[in-house]
Computed example of a mutant assay.
Amino acid sequence: MHTTKVYGGSGIDNDLHHNATDPNFSVRRSAFHSLAGLYYNYGVVERFATQLPTERKSELRLGYVEELARRQDARAVRALCAVLDDDSDAVREVAARTLGELGDSDAIEPLRAALSDPVPAVRHAIINALAALRDIGTIATLLVSFDESVPEPDRIATVHAAGAWIEPTTTALLGGIVARDGSAAVRNLAQRVLDLHAKATDCAPETRPEWLPCCSTGPRRLGR
């Protein structure tokens, strides 16, 4: 019978961990694929998820997060939530994006808590993740809070996230943004979202594409 040998703590294991911090992306990715093979009998997701929060090297933490993202396994949710306050911007951004993709509502509260992240790209990933998790309440709260103190890129990211759902509350708020926001880019995006929502709700069933849902009493995901 063939068995997979795991070299925990061996020279091979150490060499792969060293290569996983290489400046070259291809070398890092190859090293993590090899580590996944070495950890096969222990469960790759469990092993990476366990090592992620305690790993000192940011390059390895990013590699773990990227590998967990690639595997799209809900067992990684807790570990990904734990690194939403990581020192590495890249780790936080990939973790937030992956939590949205995994679709586990347990990630909503940690993502909400991380909304004040100082890095715009991370904040936008968090906003998109909350929209993907159907946290309409938080998206609506962000829309209500729009004023000139909120950076324009953040307002654009929030409007874009709100546009993923046809939902009466956010649709009404988008109408207010079209009327009053001081940024032409934000107003134009909000108007485009409203136009797409109107098309989705007004077109007749016999002519509506399958990907374009009609509005109902609950939020509907808007096809892209």
Rank of each mutant, 00 (worst) to 15 (best):
T3V: 14
V6N: 04
V6H: 02
G8Y: 09
G8E: 11
G8H: 09
G9C: 04
S10W: 01
S10F: 00
N14P: 00
N14G: 14
D15I: 02
H18C: 06
N24W: 01
F25E: 12
R29M: 03
A31F: 06
A36G: 15
L38A: 04
Y40D: 10
N41T: 14
N41K: 14
V44A: 04
V45Q: 05
F48C: 01
T50E: 01
T50C: 00
Q51Y: 07
Q51E: 14
P53T: 06
E55Q: 15
L60T: 05
Y64N: 05
E66H: 02
E66N: 13
D73T: 07
D73Q: 05
V77N: 00
V77T: 14
A79L: 05
L84W: 03
D86S: 14
A90F: 01
V91N: 03
E93C: 13
E93K: 15
E93G: 14
A95T: 10
L102I: 15
G103R: 09
G103N: 07
D106E: 15
E109I: 14
D117H: 11
D117I: 06
P118L: 03
V119K: 14
R123G: 08
H124D: 06
A125W: 02
L130V: 13
A131N: 05
L133M: 10
D135G: 12
I136S: 01
A140H: 06
A140V: 14
T141E: 14
L143I: 10
F146W: 04
D147Q: 05
E152K: 15
I156E: 09
V159A: 07
A162Q: 03
E167V: 05
T169Q: 13
T169W: 01
T171S: 15
A172M: 13
R180L: 09
G182D: 07
G182C: 02
N188W: 00
N188P: 03
L189N: 08
A190V: 07
R192A: 15
L194G: 08
H197I: 04
A198W: 03
K199I: 12
D202E: 12
D202K: 13
E206N: 09
T207N: 12
E210T: 13
W211L: 07
W211H: 14
L212K: 06
P213G: 09
P219I: 04
P219M: 02
R221V: 12
R224A: 12
